[in-house]
């Protein structure tokens, strides 16, 4: 089957998954035990207030109608009105989405090549001091929550030795790239987390490839070692590593929520946490959906790269 048809199928599949995701988001918000109106107004709200809110938000309509109205609005770009700011959600979300995308993109651009290099080096020098150090470092950075790494970095770089800002607070509407120093620590936290895990995955699949019969065959062809590693082993080790980048994208997004909150960075993640604190259900719903879409698209991209790299997957 041709590559483009395969990609087309994946895109179609993603569309279906997204429909299911929107249903699930809607279901969690509206059907799970726990009442939206109570969640917004708190336990102490009077029945009259609750009823008023329900009718204002259309919560008294049948579920099906509510879902269709909601998803219809979402598709037209109308993400509802924020209860906390009393403003339309869409423009706020869009600006923050851009900010988060900048952060995530920088993290990936830095961490993926570094992780691949480290993984390959660790695999080629398996068992060396460097390899063991990387493995240990990986366990630590993998096992530590982002906020722990982040707080330690803030403690060191903005309190003990104040060289970098410990907060990325910025004016609304501003481009985060305009204050690059404020980006350093958030990116560092996420990169460290990614680097560790991804380099270990690369290492594992690289070791696998290096031990394979085809790499042995390439060596016994008399090809130079560097050529064998890059052309024969890495080529095969790359596909699983890239697939892992896709799987890991969820952690990046989860990490964004924590890191953005920690550094007061105006991204989608912080918006989500804020809407939780403000009990701003429409914003929460919209944010979750946007994050899920981003996740789906990220996975799709990783999938396509894997397909390109591995001819076996294409048949």
């Amino acid at each position: 089957m041709s590559l483009s048809r395969l990609i087309l199928r994946r895109v179609a599949l993603l569309a279906l998954v997204l429909v299911a995701v929107s249903l699930l988001t809607f279901a969690i918000v509206n059907i799970l035990p726990g009442d939206v109106a109570t969640a917004i107004l708190g336990e102490s709200a009077t029945p009259a207030d609750l009823a008023a809110l329900r009718s204002r938000m259309g919560l008294d309509l049948p579920l099906g109608t509510r879902y269709l109205t909601w998803i219809g609005h979402m598709l037209r770009g109308d993400f509802g009105t924020s209860l906390a700011f009393n403003l339309p959600v869409a423009p706020i979300l869009l600006w923050r989405l851009g900010n988060s995308a900048i952060l995530a993109a920088l993290v990936l651009i830095i961490s993926v090549p570094c992780a691949l290099t480290l993984g390959v080096v660790a695999a080629v020098y398996e068992g060396s001091l460097l390899d063991r150090f990387l493995s240990l470092a990986a366990v630590f950075t993998f096992a530590l929550p982002e906020f722990v790494i982040g707080l330690v970095l803030i403690l060191v770089f903005s309190i003990l030795y104040p060289v970098l800002p410990g907060s990325s607070l910025m004016e609304p509407g501003l481009n985060p790239l305009s204050q690059p120093l404020a980006l350093v620590l958030p990116i560092l936290v996420l990169v460290l987390h990614q680097l560790a895990h991804l380099s270990q995955i690369t290492r594992a699949s690289m070791i696998n490839a290096l031990g394979s019969n085809y790499v042995r065959a390439a060596r016994l062809k008399g090809l130079p070692p560097a050529l064998v590693v890059v052309k024969h082993a890495l080529r095969n080790a790359l596909a699983p590593a890239i697939a892992e980048v896709g799987m890991n994208f969820g952690y990046v997004l989860g990490g964004l929520v924590v890191v953005e909150t920690l550094f007061s960075y105006a991204g989608v993640g912080q918006l989500m946490v804020m809407s939780v604190e403000n009990r701003d259900v429409p914003t929460l719903e919209a944010t979750v959906l946007v994050i899920a879409v981003a996740y789906g698209v990220g996975n799709l991209l990783a999938d396509i790269v894997s397909l390109r790299l591995n001819p076996r997957l294409r048949s």
Partner: peptide, 8 residues
């Protein structure tokens, strides 16, 4: 099969 590189 295992002696031939699957991606080349």
């Amino acid at each position: 099969l295992s002696s031939l590189n699957p991606t080349l």
